[in-house]
């Protein structure tokens, strides 16, 4: 029973961690809390749903489940296209909304408020286009596999954990080992000096949006696969995502992932021992506690 809580927490935590990695990246480079990140998650899920349904419509054979998983090739293919479309959406929002505000050297609070507006608009658009009823990538039922110790998980759930781990390792390597990662860290520390050092800061900002949107889309597909797709899904994830990003230390990719797992397991424990209605409160408690005790987070630098 206790082991099952851990497994459930890990599965939710993998999803939260992935979303939090996107938040931590955009926050550390764009320097504002983007409350529309949740809507990139929802849009990612709906775009993947739309494209994979389209693919399935063109070729029914691509919807045949890839045993032992519950979905066919149409979902991974649709996700790839959806990643590109979500990135495009983020770039458009930046070009029409955040970019002009940045150029006017708007205060951070203005950017944050603008992101609230963007979130509201993007969410309403989803409800308008797809209605607010829940959708599913697949209607297949899955048999949970025994993991030992009485714990069970479905193949889809295990896939989510594996993909989240791979993506996080990939992003971490990109950030620490590649030249674009170095440029991103340089821009995150000092934009003026980055310009003087020859870095095209605006290009780096675009890359960060693309990366953040890609991570949001993947997180959205995971949430849609494990739970359901709703216009509110991103909004519901927002508090846990920010709790994890801040707990991990803004800018730290491994920190965000680890903190995501902590929040996920914390939620599972809360549901089990306190009550399901308290699940959302856990993130809030984590957020307040970390801001009071260690505002720089687990892996953040105290001097920032």
């Amino acid at each position: 029973m206790t082991l099952q809580i851990l497994v459930d927490g890990l599965i939710a935590g993998a999803m939260i961690g992935l979303g939090a990695v996107g938040i931590t990246l955009t926050y550390s480079i764009l320097r504002f809390a983007n409350f529309a990140h949740g809507e990139l998650i929802s849009w990612g899920a709906y775009l993947a749903l739309a494209v994979s349904s389209g693919i399935g419509f063109l070729s029914a054979s691509l919807t045949v489940p890839l045993a032992p998983f519950s979905f066919g090739w149409s979902l991974p293919l649709g996700t790839l296209v959806a990643i590109a479309l979500t990135a495009l959406l983020a770039l458009i929002v930046d070009a029409v909304l955040f970019g002009p505000l940045r150029r006017r050297r708007g205060a951070v609070i203005i950017l944050v408020m603008a992101s609230f507006g963007a979130a509201l608009t993007l969410r309403s658009l989803l409800e308008f286009i797809f209605t607010s009823g829940p959708r599913y990538f697949t209607q297949e039922l899955q048999i949970a596999i025994r993991l030992g110790g009485g714990a069970r998980a479905t193949p889809d759930q295990m896939l989510v954990i594996a993909v989240a781990a791979l993506v996080v390792v990939g992003v971490h390597l990109l950030l620490t080992r590649s030249s674009i990662g170095r440029s991103m860290r340089a821009v995150s520390e000092n934009q003026q000096l980055a310009g003087v050092a020859g870095i095209d800061v605006r290009a780096v900002v675009r890359i960060v949006w693309i990366l953040g949107a890609a991570l949001a889309c993947i997180a959205g597909v995971m949430a849609g696969l494990l739970v359901q797709i709703r216009p509110q899904m991103g909004l519901d994830l927002l508090l846990p995502l920010f709790a994890a990003a801040i707990l991990g230390g803004i800018g730290s990719v491994p920190g965000a992932m680890l903190a995501g797992l902590i929040v996920g397991i914390g939620e599972a424990l809360t549901v089990r021992y306190v009550g399901a209605e308290w699940r959302a409160a856990l993130s809030f408690v984590v957020l307040v506690a970390i801001l009071l005790v260690r505002p720089q987070g687990l892996f953040g630098k105290a001097d920032r």
Partner: peptide, 25 residues
């Protein structure tokens, strides 16, 4: 080339990374 008065290095990067960033162009 310009060396600013303050904050003229990337403190969170290593020495080598500071040079690599500049060499990127």
């Amino acid at each position: 080339a310009f060396v600013p008065q303050t904050e003229n290095i990337f403190a969170s990067l290593t020495i080598h990374e500071n040079l690599q960033v500049a060499a990127n162009i």
